[in-house]
Nucleic acid binder design. Structure first.
Lengths: 173, 173
DNA sequence: TCTCCGTTAGTCAAATTTGACTAGTTGTTT
DNA sequence: AAACAACTAGTCAAATTTGACTAACGGAGA
């Protein structure tokens, strides 16, 4: 058996899913896409890759399954070692906080490159987009409740406030 | 000359830097690390790679420079085509808003896996970490002002509020 | 019943990103 | 002045991630 790979959030995510019930690869990637795609972005091929690695190190097992005349599929299940890793990883990563990356902020470095009038227009356009996102989210939240949705609302709120202040600042210049 | 590559934030960032003044690769990567490392995370090797690609498509040029007895270095400068791309990219990306990824939120999906007492403890520990980050940032902000620092403060604030509400929720359970 | 289309299940080559390494230069200590 | 650390400048192989592809099956309509 191979050496322990270092585990990150993606491994935690996959282990956490397999903990609920065993799943075949397609099921995993579909669940990720439809239920968690809003929050995390783990593509199908990456999921398959990670599942393969985690099998190599013994955190998950797989067996082949043939149902009806559908193509054979590999069903993954978490092992006791995987569960141990999950428990450890959960406890170590929950209290951590790493500041997320905001690649969308890059253009904000170069506001100086824009003529005075256009600058405000583009910022206001951005604010409009954020506003729309927020209203869409709040509508959505009438139906479904989840802490991560609350999180997103808070973040969008913060973006709005910040953009508002920035626009004011740029305007009074 | 090669076909146009599709440009993203990283290209915008590099073009924006080279717009101010020409720089050699090491200078670029050092500037990224020391001045922008807090905000964006673009490693040295990636920067070199992108500079190479951007040279292939004609957005930047490079010439060799020998200073004193130091090793030869390649000095990169933006071209008129690069400037055009920069202008276009800036105007298209500024009003966009893509929600950032929060990989650190993965463990929050699995709070159910923790016994009642520990859950609150770990969440409070996380809140402590965020709080410390915020105070550190506010101290830092007494000396330097920058919209992106304000942005970070707003985000950390939002995290704190959200964590507070979540902890309350979990406690009253 | 034949055809076409969307779903299921997964693979693969190519693109991207990174950590580790090299190798010369300057500075510092003893 | 010898030894050693730290800075400069960049390269490279390996790991990661992705978009595009395959191929079989099930169902709907003509």
């Amino acid at each position: 058996m191979k050496r322990l790979a270092k585990a990150g959030e993606l491994e935690l995510l996959l282990l956490g899913l397999l903990r609920r019930r065993e799943m075949h690869g397609y099921q995993v990637s579909e669940f990720l896409e439809t239920h968690l795609g809003m929050f995390f972005d783990l593509k199908k091929a990456t999921a398959y890759n990670l599942l393969g690695k985690m099998e190599e190190v013994g955190w998950v097992t797989s067996r082949e399954e043939k149902e009806g005349r559908r193509p054979i599929r590999r069903v993954f299940a978490i092992t006791p070692e995987g569960e141990a890793i999950f428990q450890d990883l959960l406890r170590r990563s929950l209290p951590e906080y790493r500041y997320p990356a905001f690649p969308g902020n890059v253009p904000l470095l170069f506001l100086d490159a824009l003529p005075p009038g256009e600058k405000e227009d583009l910022l206001k356009e951005r604010r409009g987009v954020v506003r729309d996102r927020l209203t869409a989210l709040e509508t959505h939240m009438d139906h479904i409740a989840h802490p991560l949705l609350d999180h997103r609302r808070e973040i969008l709120h913060a973006e709005l406030d910040w953009l508002g202040a920035l626009i004011e600042d740029v305007e009074k210049k």
